[in-house]
Amino acid sequence: MGSSMIIGQYVPGNSFIHRLDPRTKITIIFFFVLIVFFANSVMSYGLLTLFAVGSAVSTRIPAPYLIKGLLPVWFLIVFTFILHLFVTKEGEVLFTIFSFDFYTGGIIQGLAISLRFFLLILVTSLLTLTTTPIEITDAIEGMLGPLKKIRFPVHELALMMSISLRFIPTLMQETEKISKAQASRGVDFRTGSFKDRIKAVVPLLVPLFVSAFKRAEELAMAMEARGYQGGEGRTKLRELRIGKLDTYTYILFILLVIGLFLTRA
């Protein structure tokens, strides 16, 4: 599946969701996750689905890409549904197959839970699909800001995250390079018993750690040479700004919440 899995991937774009402040996106997704559990009528589910699907469409990420990308999750959704069919024994017996009774309650429950599950996955994956990892880092730094008062190292945490993001591709290349070098010295990463394979990982992991430490050391020196001395007195290039777009989005979301409670059974 590998490359078709889209959870956690960023798809560049310029839709209004792409342009939203990442803090807005995180806040709304957080509350959306909460209110999904309040839906209990066809109308209320319909409203939430409309919101989620509407958001997804507005990102202009091609639908087939989204649907295919959520493939591994589809399996879970279908599984949840079937589980409910078998386990929930409420309401009337709708039909019987091989002397097993299927209840209306099971079907309704199954549908409702699977739909919730689907909505959660869809909306949360929209965050990573439309927000670069570094924007998410900025948002976290911004939102945790108040914790600085209790000496929580917010700036350091954010810097750590952004440096990790920066070095992921570098370390991936390095892993490939070292595994090729060791394969050339006769290491077989693919076959052999479990124990053999664990042993084959050592010649890969040790050099990776050594090189990561060396990189860290050199990076620290380079950062110091460039005047880094912690978060104090530091200015920032990347700025988060709540704009009109964000305000409209919040209003829309509040309307959704009101609508939800009006349509609840």
Binding site: E174, A181, Q182, S184, G186, V202, P203, P207, V210
Partner: peptide, 17 residues
């Protein structure tokens, strides 16, 4: 084949472990 073809990669010291 890999035994007969020795490869010295760029910066080979990175493979020491």
């Amino acid at each position: 084949l890999r035994e007969k073809v020795g490869v010295v990669f760029q910066y080979p010291e990175h493979q020491l472990f």
